[in-house]
Design a protein around this nucleic acid. Structure first.
Ligand SMILES: [Mn+2]
Ligand SMILES: [Mn+2]
Ligand SMILES: [Mn+2]
Ligand SMILES: [Mn+2]
Lengths: 224, 224
DNA sequence: AATATATTTTAGCCTAATCTAAAATAATCT
DNA sequence: AGATTATTTTAGATTAGGCTAAAATATATT
């Protein structure tokens, strides 16, 4: 189906996907920051993405872009490769969490579809990757998930830790020290309305864990 | 040490290495054919390789190039990646022989040094790849080998099949039908001076195998 | 040795993807 | 509402790596 897009095209599309997955448009400046290029370069590129046939983005001057369905297909394919690679590097090649990102981000464009499917098979056709991130299926459907931000849970509610915003490895390591990693059950014991701190009971930990709003806002849980 | 050379640079250097490993110079037209670009493009590129600092090739106008030792280091690094990947794709991901080449040729530039070493470890630090091709060590030494062309063996002489010229998968499959694959012992029973045919005893085969000069010239054996 | 053929190099052009500086537009503040 | 600030777009330039056509050089043939 889809033509063979360049690695650069794919990086733009993946970035736009991640910026718009929760609704809204991806703005020039945001894309520029993520891809570490100048806004002028982004304007140039998104105009080219918009004038591909079929168009890959819907571009409104001065108001950023959204993906067309063609653009989304490409983005999901790259994202599938990316998340399969993350898992593969960690599980099969023994990469540590923090080394995974850079390598997967380079390899995601270099591997063939066939490579992707071979890796998927070796890994047992996973639907969740590192940090619990969802992996699009081979036919590019996102696995359904009933996620809620930990920040929004209140005493008495509980869930399974799922993933963290932006997949920040530094934050990930910090949370690991409190036993907080994907798959772990947690329940909210208390909430302080003044500082928005949450007091948590974390599976496998004796002491309760207290996290500030700037941290809980970054954590997604699958509500029970 | 070495700067970060582009994938294109590396493809040229690997190609030049393979064209000069048996001595002599790599000519513009040969490189152009292997890389499927025009001779004019090759001239342009080898002039740039020659004016890198340090220079990667020794260029003599109208008489092709040889690698400098810096160029050879880069070539060996790429070749190591390439041959590790070939083996990896076949052994770990279950690629068939003929699918391996294209993927490895793309991935050889995309993987990091770290990835290469992780793969090497998973494979058990191999020194020979598919078709018995030698894999440069981590510090870029080629494994010693006392190879001779099957074409030059005469009755009474014998050896272990090692590899085939140019790693042609079609020829490889043809030879497999006669039990001829890397690691198999063979001895020369007879030689016809008129057609240069060789009559071979191949380990594991009852009937003798007769091969023409155009085939025996492509086969390397480790002499006993 | 002269001519014909094959190979290589030069010259000029092209596209993708980036940049900087300046101009245009939108968003924010008073 | 008007002025200031922030963001985006345009214009023009650059670099890598390719191309074609023509010129230069080398190799082969008579
Ligand atoms: Mn707007
Ligand atoms: Mn990428
Ligand atoms: Mn010469
Ligand atoms: Mn290559």
């Amino acid at each position: 189906m889809s033509a063979a897009y360049s690695g650069t095209h794919k990086d733009y599309l993946k970035t736009i996907y991640l910026l718009t997955v929760d609704g809204g448009r991806a703005e020039t400046g945001q894309i520029a920051e993520k891809l570490r290029v100048t806004p002028a370069s982004v304007t140039d590129m998104i105009q080219r993405l918009a004038s591909e046939s079929p168009p890959l983005v819907d571009y409104q001057k001065y108001h950023g872009v959204t993906l067309t369905s063609e653009g989304e297909q490409v983005a999901l394919q790259v994202l599938r490769h990316y998340r399969l690679l993350e898992l593969f590097l960690h599980e099969i090649l023994g990469y540590s969490w923090d080394k995974v990102h850079t390598e997967a981000n380079r390899l995601e464009h270099a591997i063939s579809e066939y490579f992707g499917e071979r890796v998927a098979e070796v890994l047992g056709e996973p639907t969740r990757g590192l940090y619990g991130s969802p992996i699009p299926s081979k036919d590019l459907e996102m696995p359904h998930q009933n996620l809620v931000c930990l920040h929004d849970l209140r005493p008495g509610e509980s869930g399974i830790m799922h993933s963290i915003w932006d997949e920040d490895p530094g934050l990930f390591r910090y949370l690991e020290k409190y036993g907080l990693k994907p798959g772990v059950k947690l329940s909210v014991l208390d909430y302080s309305p003044y500082d928005h701190n949450l007091h948590l009971q974390v599976e496998g930990q004796e002491k309760e864990v207290v996290l500030g709003a700037s941290v809980t806002a970054q954590i997604f849980v699958e509500k029970e």
